[in-house]
Structure formats: structure tokens, C-alpha cells
Simulated scan of single mutants.
Amino acid sequence: MRNQSPEQLEGRLNAHRKLLVALAAFIADGAEGRAFVERLRRDAETVLDHEEDPGVEPNGSFATQQIADDELQSIVTAALLRVQAVGRQEQARGDAAPESEDR
């Protein structure tokens, strides 16, 4: 792959993130899929409570692991929020539709 500018890399990463959020929201639209996505949000991949002592100066793998876990949590949370927002919009339209028929 050719060398890309930081802007090009950022644009590509943003596109991947948008796609992942949309796919996770699609999966979370059903009860079984929502349970799966909720499990993803609950299950942290980072080391907690000194399960593994990184030492005085932790190496880059701990930082990378934390960044990856933060991004996964961010994507899953965005997907669940999107599902909730779509549900509220559909509910609002459903509530508004009968009133408009009476007019």
C-alpha cells in the first residue's frame, strides 16, 4: 500500500468506524443481537486491579490494549445509542401518525 498522509489515514479510519457502528447497530436491533452487543460493552479487554503488573514503566502493549478497548467501547456504545434513537424516532412517528389521520 502506498504511503498515505495523516489526513487520508484519518479519513479511512473514520469510515471504518462509521461502518462498524452501523453494523453493530443493525445487529443490536433484535433482542439476541442486542444481548450480544451489550456483552461486548461489558467485557473489557484491559487488565484490571493489578491482574498483571506492568511494572514501573509499562510497555507499549498496555497502552495499545487500552486504546483498542476504549475504541471498542466507544463503537459499541455509539451503536446502542443509535438503536435507542431510532426506536424513539419510530415511536414518535407512530404516536404522531394516528393524530394526522384524524385531521
Rank of each mutant, 00 (worst) to 15 (best):
G55Y: 02
D53G: 13
R39S: 14
L72Y: 04
T64C: 15
P54L: 15
R34M: 05
L9Q: 04
A68I: 10
D49Y: 01
L80G: 06
V83H: 02
A78P: 00
T64A: 15
A15P: 00
L23E: 14
D95Q: 06
R82E: 09
A63V: 10
A25G: 08
L9K: 08
N3M: 09
E38K: 02
G94P: 00
R103H: 13
E90L: 05
A85G: 12
R39V: 15
V37C: 02
R82I: 01
A85R: 04
Q4K: 04
E90Y: 00
H16Q: 12
E71A: 15
A79F: 00
E10N: 09
P98F: 07
A15V: 03
A28M: 07
N3D: 14
G11C: 03
E57P: 00
N14G: 11
T77S: 10
G87T: 06
R82V: 03
R93F: 01
D102T: 12
P6D: 13
E32N: 04
S74W: 00
A15N: 10
R17S: 07
I75V: 13
Q84S: 11
D53I: 08
G87Q: 03
I27E: 05
F62L: 11
G87N: 14
P98Q: 10
A85Q: 05
R12M: 11
A63H: 12
Q65T: 10
G87A: 14
D102E: 15
A28F: 01
L23C: 14
A97I: 04
D95I: 05
D69P: 03
Q66A: 15
A96N: 04
E57W: 00
A97K: 01
D69W: 01
A28N: 10
D43Y: 05
Q89S: 13
P98M: 13
A79H: 01
I75Q: 08
E10F: 05
A92L: 07
A22L: 07
L48S: 15
D49C: 14
V56R: 11
L19F: 08
L13V: 09
G30R: 03
A15S: 13
E51F: 08
A92C: 01
V86K: 08
F36I: 02
D49M: 09
L19P: 02
V37G: 03
V56E: 14
V37P: 00
V21K: 01
M1H: 05
L13S: 06
G87V: 05
R103V: 14
A96Q: 04
A35L: 02
E101W: 04
Q84K: 02
R42M: 12
T46S: 14
A92I: 05
T77E: 11
A28Q: 03
A44R: 06
S61E: 15
E71T: 10
A44V: 11
A31Q: 11
L81K: 07
P6L: 09
